[in-house]
Computed example of a mutant assay.
Amino acid sequence: MASSKDRQRKLARAKLDRQMARRAEKTQRRRRIQAGVGAGLGLLLIVGGVAWLSGAFDKDDTQTNNASDSDVCAWVPQSVASNTSLKEVGTPPTKGIPTSGTQTMTITTNHGKPIVVSMDLTSVPCSAASFSYLSGKKFFDNTECHELTTEGAVHCGDPTGTGQGGPTYSFYDENLPSAPPTPAPSPSAKVPPKIAPVYPKGTVALIGNPPGTNGSQFLIFFKDFSPADPKYSIVGRVTDGMDTVAAIGAIPTVDNGSGSKVKPKDKIVVQSLTVSAATGGATPAPATSSQS
């Protein structure tokens, strides 16, 4: 018999899938309308021009971008009783979340200049909403990045520094990359085929425990990484501060106490993490967060 937590996860997953399907259907309908208008514009220029300029064809677009009409994200509760490393901060709102445009995340550490990350809200509205919510709670401030992983990334976002910490909610993958394609045979055996890495350096991705149950922990890759089975959903890309990321990646590592040489010899401290307001997209109605 499925546990209560399993049922909650399945319900939340199903709910989010329905919402994403409705959003995709509305977007497709809008494109069909725009295509039809474009095809008949020559014949309907006089009659339809006024209606077009007045926004008569924008009704579906308004519904698509009005995130206050329905839930955008589903947050799965996590129990402190089952994981004492979690930190109670409530949950982000489920409505009023922008689903277009971009947001900028700025990570200030004790190494070099700030790391600036661009997040595309079309691909990761819930991931960005979570970061924005937690940053407002100063969840990340004065926390340590406790690992330099063997995959070539700095591991941050866990206030406990154990890999078990996070907020008392989780959410599902939004922008999980596909496995890399099989390279085509090279005309010359001396020239290996070139394939774009799954996680190029500068990628910021979520790391869940287990995979797919994302919280606050994230990776910033300082090396290219192409796993056969990607498990980290991509949140954004570093647009400034890659020299800081590279310097952090060059820090020597020592044993973390469990036989893995991944603990940075010098402390890596997130002094602050902030997220800007959304730009370049529709402005959603304000929403209040829920406290558990």
Rank of each mutant, 00 (worst) to 15 (best):
P93G: 06
D255T: 14
G259D: 10
S216C: 01
C145P: 08
S130N: 14
T244K: 10
E25K: 13
D255A: 13
M242P: 09
Q19S: 09
G161E: 01
L11T: 14
D120E: 09
F218Q: 03
G166N: 07
F222Q: 07
G49Y: 12
G215E: 10
G136Y: 11
Y232M: 09
L219W: 02
S170D: 04
I248W: 06
S290I: 08
I268H: 09
R9H: 04
Q78T: 04
D69A: 05
T244S: 05
K5W: 08
P185Y: 02
E174R: 03
K26I: 08
Y172C: 03
E151Q: 14
D69Y: 04
S178A: 15
P114C: 07
A179S: 15
A285M: 01
K26G: 00
E147G: 04
Q63N: 10
C145G: 09
Q164M: 14
A74N: 10
S4T: 13
L53C: 02
Q28S: 15
F140H: 07
L273H: 05
S82I: 04
P98W: 00
S186Y: 06
H146N: 09
R22Q: 14
A12R: 12
D120G: 09
G48H: 05
Q28L: 12
R23G: 10
G96K: 05
T84I: 04
P92N: 08
A12W: 09
A12H: 12
I195T: 15
Q19R: 12
R31Q: 15
F139C: 01
R7P: 00
G40F: 14
C73H: 03
F171P: 03
R237M: 02
K95G: 02
G280N: 13
K26N: 01
P98M: 02
W52A: 06
G157W: 03
D6K: 14
I46Y: 11
A228W: 00
T162K: 05
L121W: 12
A196V: 05
P183N: 03
S132M: 01
K113S: 15
C73Q: 05
S3V: 04
A129R: 14
V191S: 10
Q103I: 02
R9S: 02
E144T: 12
T274I: 00
T106R: 15
W52H: 03
T64E: 11
L16D: 05
P77Y: 13
S186L: 09
